[in-house]
């Protein structure tokens, strides 16, 4: 019997190896392992064996069955894989055709700039304050040391609604409101971004509506050097770590001393080019030490507290940073402009 079993195994394994399709494999399974299969047939003669032989042959028979079963499974798997490969080959597509379009939206460039500036100052412990766009003459001018008939009011042509109501010309009234709300009782570290309006005819560098962001720090012992250091951090973050800043005297009614800040020109690295009008510097923003009258008007004792303030136009920052050549692009909202700055 032993020989018979070994012969069956050999025959079966060879036959399975030759099987060309799953049907043939199935036939092999019936032929060798089925109820009428050769292995079964042989095993029927087990009864005739001696007690001693029975377990030996039994084990051998099981081994043969296992070996054939394994061979059958292996063959089946191989055939299936081949069939699948064949099928997949037929499913080949042109991967160079365009994919399903996904709508890509995005923020407006000015929003990106604003958030970048906000985040920079938030990181330095500033809170973000907002205020009304329709302001009173009192908060927009008088509280900022610009009494009626002050010549510097000419610097800001104003959209008036009534004698007392106007579209704010600057975000500074938010500073005035904040100082007033704190009543001189606590230090302040804030920025205030927002829309402002001036009577300008819209052209490449002017817009009757634009956005500012201003900052205010009030505490004991705030110095002009603190302003310089803070603006330096800002300039390096916005325009690159190699940028230098310089301060120049300027005039704003609500600060004294007042300064303008220039950043060394990125295009020519300070050597002078058409972008910086051959000066090597580009004017970025204005600022200064909060005028003592402004502090006093909001209840801060100017002999105890001092502060600095600064303000800039977001459009100008964006134009310089991204090379935008016409301020009107921000408000025309041409999709071909907006989509250039998806990830700005």
């Amino acid at each position: 019997m032993k020989e018979e079993l070994q012969a069956i195994e050999q025959e079966a394994l060879a036959a399975i190896e030759k099987a060309e399709n799953s049907q043939a494999v199935q036939e092999m399974k019936v032929k060798y392992l089925g109820k009428k299969g050769s292995l079964t047939t042989v095993l029927r003669g087990m009864g005739k064996l001696s007690k001693e032989e029975r377990p030996v042959i039994g084990e051998l028979a099981n081994n043969v069955r296992e070996s054939i079963t394994e061979a059958l499974e292996a063959k089946t798997e191989k055939l299936e894989r081949e069939a699948l490969n064949e099928q997949l080959e037929t499913e080949t597509i042109d991967v160079t055709l365009p994919g399903n379009p996904v709508h890509v939206g995005g923020r407006h460039l000015l929003t990106s700039i604003m958030e970048e500036i906000e985040d920079l100052f938030i990181g330095m412990g500033y809170e973000v304050k907002e205020g009304p766009e329709v302001e009173t003459d009192y908060y927009n001018f008088e509280k900022l040391n610009l009494p009626k008939n002050h010549p510097a009011r000419d610097m800001q042509d104003t959209f008036f609604i009534t004698n007392e109501l106007l579209l704010r010309t600057q975000t500074s009234p938010v500073q005035a409101r904040t100082m007033e709300a704190y009543q001189g009782k606590r230090p302040i570290k804030m920025i205030c971004p927002g829309k402002v309006y001036r009577r300008d005819t819209d052209d490449a560098t002017h817009s009757h509506q634009f956005r500012q962001i201003e900052g205010l720090v009030v505490d004991k012992n705030i110095t002009l050097s603190d302003l310089k250091g803070t603006l330096d951090v800002f300039a390096k973050k916005m325009f690159g770590k190699d940028r230098e800043i310089r301060l120049r005297p300027s005039f704003f009614p609500f600060t004294e001393p007042s300064v303008e800040m220039d950043v060394s020109c990125k295009v020519c690295n300070g050597k002078g080019c058409s972008v910086c009008k051959h000066t090597g510097w580009i004017e970025i923003l204005g600022g200064g030490m909060v005028h003592p009258r402004v502090l006093e008007m909001s209840g801060y004792d100017s002999t105890v507290y001092s502060g600095f303030a600064f303000g800039m136009g977001q459009e100008r920052i964006a134009m310089l940073k991204y090379g935008v050549n016409d301020i009107r692009h921000f408000y025309t909202n041409d999709v071909r402009f907006l989509s250039q700055y998806h990830q700005a």
Partner: peptide, 20 residues
């Protein structure tokens, strides 16, 4: 000359900045 001013950051009072 403004160029002689040092670069410093306000010291002292601190608050956690942030958005509302």
């Amino acid at each position: 000359g403004y160029d002689h001013l040092p670069y410093t950051i306000p010291q002292g009072w601190v608050q956690a900045g942030g958005l509302t």
